[in-house]
C-alpha cells in the first residue's frame, strides 16, 4: 500500500536528516575551532556547503512528503504547526548560510552551527505532532 510506503519514508528520512544536521553542527564547530570563515571558500568550507546542500534537499523532500501525507490523512492534527515545522528548516538554512557567510571571522560558522542545531529540534517537534502529541 502506498500509505504504508510513505509512512516508512517519513520515519527513515527524518532520522537521516537528523544525522546530517548533527554532522553539519560538528563541521561548523570545526570551522570555528580552526578560525575558518565560510568565505573565501576553502576545502573545509566547501565540505560544509556540500553537507548543507544535501540537508536542504532532504528537508525539501521531507516537507513535500509531509504535506502530501497531511493532505491524505483524516486524523485530527494541528496542520498549520505541522507544516510550519516542515517548512521552517528549509527557509532557515539558506538564510543562516548567507548571514554567516557575510561575516569573515571565526564566528561565520557559528550562524550555521545554530541553524544546524535547530533542525533536529524541529524534526522532533514535527514527529510529535504527527504522532498526535503536539
Amino acid at each position: 500500500m502506498t500509505s504504508g510506503y510513505h509512512a516508512r519514508v517519513i520515519s527513515v528520512l527524518p532520522t537521516v536528516l537528523t544525522i546530517v544536521a548533527l554532522l553539519g553542527t560538528t563541521w561548523a564547530v570545526m570551522l570555528m575551532v580552526r578560525k575558518t570563515p565560510l568565505l573565501p571558500p576553502t576545502a573545509l568550507s566547501w565540505g560544509l556547503v556540500g553537507l548543507l546542500t544535501l540537508l536542504e534537499l532532504g528537508l525539501l523532500v521531507q516537507a513535500i512528503i509531509g504535506i502530501v501525507q497531511l493532505a491524505g490523512t483524516d486524523r485530527q492534527l494541528s496542520g498549520v504547526t505541522f507544516v510550519g515545522y516542515l517548512v521552517a528548516p528549509v527557509l532557515i538554512l539558506p538564510v543562516a548560510f548567507v548571514w554567516g557567510a557575510s561575516d569573515r571571522s571565526r564566528w561565520s560558522g557559528g550562524v550555521v552551527l545554530v541553524a544546524c542545531m535547530s533542525v533536529p529540534v524541529m524534526i522532533v517537534r514535527m514527529q510529535q505532532i504527527w504522532a498526535g502529541h503536539g
Partner: peptide
C-alpha cells in the same frame, strides 16, 4: 560582529519560533 553573529542567529530562531507559535 564576532560572537554577536551567533547570538543574533539564536535570537532570529527564537523570533521565528515565538512569532509562529503566537500567531497559531
Amino acid at each position: 560582529t564576532g560572537p554577536g553573529r551567533l547570538l543574533i542567529a539564536v535570537y532570529g530562531i527564537f523570533a521565528l519560533a515565538a512569532t509562529s507559535r503566537s500567531a497559531v
